[in-house]
């Protein structure tokens, strides 16, 4: 599934565009970015509350295509700029990580 289809299905606010061709296969929920770096699979969505540009740096390392910012956290401008440069999409939601992870797992056919 592409990030666009996923974000549309979730009705989350897209605040930075990414790679429209990339296919999302998996997801990872985590706020400790060293853990994300070590354990997230490539071609994933990252579900997190870490709304800052270093999240983009970690996402680019592990080939994460979409960052979902939960709990109504807003991506600051420098984060959106970094994401655009790295071709990583960002969306925002009022859902918490648990609810977002459940919805995304269903859409990806993981549950």
């Amino acid at each position: 599934m592409t990030y666009e289809k996923l974000v549309t299905a979730l009705q989350y606010r897209l605040v930075a565009d990414g790679d429209r061709q990339a296919v999302i296969e998996d997801a990872y929920a985590g706020d400790l970015l060293s853990d994300v770096m070590g354990n997230a699979n490539q071609d994933s969505v990252l579900i997190t509350i870490q709304a800052h540009k270093n999240t983009v740096a970690v996402a680019s390392l592990v080939q994460i295509h979409l960052i979902v910012l939960c709990n109504d956290r807003k991506a600051p401008e420098d984060m959106r700029t970094a994401a655009t440069e790295q071709n990583i999409a960002i969306c925002e939601t009022t859902d918490n990580q648990f609810v977002a992870a459940y919805k995304i797992a269903r859409l990806l056919g993981k549950v």
């Binding site: 400790l32 970015l33 060293s34 994300v36």
Partner: peptide, 9 residues
């Protein structure tokens, strides 16, 4: 920085 971000920016 190392634990929470994974690197030192």
């Amino acid at each position: 920085l190392t634990a929470n971000l994974g690197f030192v920016p």
